[in-house]
Structure formats: C-alpha cells, structure tokens
C-alpha cells in the first residue's frame, strides 16, 4: 500500500501594491523567495499559516493568500506544480525578468524578507 506523503505546504500571495509574488516566512513576514518560506508539515500548521495569511490580506498587505504543495530539496521548499514553480521564477521566455533575474543577480538568500 502506498504510504501517504507528509504534508509539505507553504503560503503564497501577491503583494497588494505591486502584485509581486511573495511567501510567508517563519517570522510571519513576506519574502519574495520561496526558499525563505515557512513549511507547514501538518494540517494544523498549514491552517495556522493560512490564518496568518488571511490576517495579512485583511490588513491590505497581500491579495489572495493560498497554500501550495512543495517538495523539499536540500531542506529548501520547491513548488510542486509547474504553475507555482513558474511563480517563483518569472516568465520562462524572459529570463531577464522576474525573480529568476533577481536571483541570478544575487537577490535570493540574502535575508530577502521585506514586509
């Protein structure tokens, strides 16, 4: 019998003011990088993340927070679905734009939480 995979989810949203994609961190801040995201490993912790996201939406920081499934690569989350993975990169046909470009320029992993 297949063993049901553990829950691995992070919370994402778009910032209200500029629409950019963000992820909720352990410190309940929002980071542009999925690597910084807090990973929920149980239904309860996922619900808790969701609750924090809804508060941020009510406070008009972000729009439309929702949970996404991730897999862990070297202890860092990576979006499972292609749609969500592309949101962590930017348009694949314009690698000079979006997060992938900032990442290439050294933007990621520098404590990028900004809200």
């Amino acid at each position: 019998m297949a063993v049901k995979k553990d829950v691995r989810q992070v919370l994402t949203a778009n910032l209200l003011k500029d629409g950019l994609v963000v992820f909720m961190t352990d410190g309940a801040a929002w980071s542009p990088w999925i690597e910084d995201a807090a990973i929920a490993t149980s239904k309860e912790s996922a619900l808790e993340l969701e609750g924090r996201g809804n508060i941020a939406a009510k406070a008009n920081v972000v729009v439309g927070p929702y949970l996404i499934d991730v897999i862990e690569e070297n202890g860092r989350p990576r979006a499972n679905l292609i749609r969500e993975h592309l949101r962590t990169l930017g348009p694949t046909v314009r690698t000079d734009l979006g997060k992938q470009a900032e990442r290439a320029a050294g933007g990621s992993g520098q404590g990028g939480a900004f809200i």
């Binding site: 778009n14 008009n60 348009p91």
Partner: peptide
Amino acid sequence: RISGELTEDEFRPLRLMNGLYLQLHAY
C-alpha cells in the same frame, strides 16, 4: 483600496472595469 477602505472583493470588479488584472507574476 490601499488604505483598506475597500476590500479586495469590493475593489476587484472596479479594477477589472479599468482593465487591471492580477496575473501570475504581477498585475
């Protein structure tokens, strides 16, 4: 909207009437 006087549910139809969508990476 930015000040919070309008919720997203209230604002969404207004922005759409003016051609502003929220897409994958940005507006």
